[in-house]
């Protein structure tokens, strides 16, 4: 039986996390929500896919985060000619005491925080090299399994434009990402702040807030956050609702997987800890439903022709699924 987190533990953890968030906010301007979601994803042991136009600070955010939490940080720039071995590592023939043998040279995947930049530019074969590492946290080369250090996070970025010469991530690969976060452009005041406070080509000074052990402790605390059965039921109903029952009227071709339900639950717990609570809630689920589900739903061609997006579909599901399954009669009404 898991010992649930206490109020004092959650408050202390929340303070730490907010300190990290504040540090990142002082470096990356105008992306408070994005930073919060990235931290939640990290605490939930999830990989994150960041999607946005070039220059919005995706790479900068990942680099800043790596500095803040002092994790072993690696960057892989995905290009069409990148090979799986370039990521996982290759066996190299070496001569040792007169004998020739293959020695495994670790690739950039062997780190704690991996920035997979422009992941959709690599070929599907290379993209799939990430699958095993992301799911199993190890790499198999020539039948030999190589464990990757803990914690292990992949933060991938992709560009929604310049689609020529890109390879959209396959559904199986997308499913490995806990969140898909959209990075939006900044408003005028934020841009002004960026112009005033940053210089081209000069990296900002970032303090280290916590270390690897702190992160692992926080992750352990997330596990101890209480997930009420009603919230679990709510998650299950939301994920189930992504599988439309009537194929004729359905806008969804394929719904979310059970992995999505697990991710939503983990995210809800992490968000609860971020907010200093001891239990996950309906609000946490609602807040994270879109980042968790939007890349896991495959739309029908009718939805595409109607101009619907997965984000709209998730919104409609949230509206449709009530928190409490039991309704109230018409003889009383709920006044807001």
């Amino acid at each position: 039986m898991i010992k649930h987190i206490s109020e004092s533990e959650s408050t202390a953890a929340s303070k730490k996390i907010y300190k990290l968030a504040d540090t990142l906010n002082s470096t990356i301007f105008g992306q408070k929500n994005l930073i919060e979601n990235v931290i939640i994803g990290l605490l939930a042991r999830g990989h994150i896919l960041l999607e946005g136009l070039p220059g919005l600070g995706k790479t900068e955010l990942v680099k800043s985060l790596a500095k803040c939490i002092q994790l072993d940080h690696k960057r892989i720039q995905f290009t069409p000619d990148l090979l799986p071995g370039d990521i996982t590592g290759n066996p190299v023939l070496q001569e040792n005491e007169g004998k020739r043998e293959f020695v495994f040279q670790k690739g950039p995947i062997f780190g704690n925080l991996i920035l997979a930049d422009e992941i959709n530019r690599a070929s599907p074969k290379t993209q799939s090299a990430m699958l095993e590492a992301m799911q199993e946290q190890h790499v198999t080369v020539m039948g030999e399994v190589h464990q990757i250090a803990d914690p292990f996070f992949v933060l991938a970025t992709q560009n929604p434009i310049e689609l020529e010469g890109t390879y959209p991530l396959p559904e199986a690969q997308l499913d490995r990402f806990l969140f898909k976060l959209n990075v939006y452009r900044n408003d005028v005041s934020t841009l002004e702040k960026i112009v005033n406070e940053r210089e081209m080509g000069i990296e900002p000074n970032i303090d280290s807030i916590m270390n690897k052990n702190d992160i692992l402790e926080l992750i352990a605390l997330v596990h101890r956050v209480y997930l009420p059965d009603v919230v679990a039921n709510y998650i299950a109903r939301i994920v189930d609702a992504t599988h439309e029952k009537d194929p004729n009227s359905s806008l969804i071709k394929f719904g979310a997987s059970p992995r999505a339900a697990l991710g939503l639950a983990a995210g809800a717990k992490a968000r609860a800890l971020l907010n200093g609570r001891i239990n996950a809630s309906f609000e946490d689920v609602k807040a994270l439903a879109k980042p968790v589900l939007q890349h896991r739903i495959i739309l029908d061609y009718r939805a595409k022709l109607d101009g619907k997006t997965t984000s709209m579909i998730v919104d409609s599901i949230l509206k449709k699924i009530p928190v409490n399954q039991q309704g109230i009669p018409a003889t009383i009404k709920d006044v807001n």
Partner: peptide, 12 residues
């Protein structure tokens, strides 16, 4: 944020 239900379940 489900505090009532959690308390009812003996958590918090």
């Amino acid at each position: 944020n489900n505090r009532l239900y959690s308390a009812y379940q003996g958590v918090g």
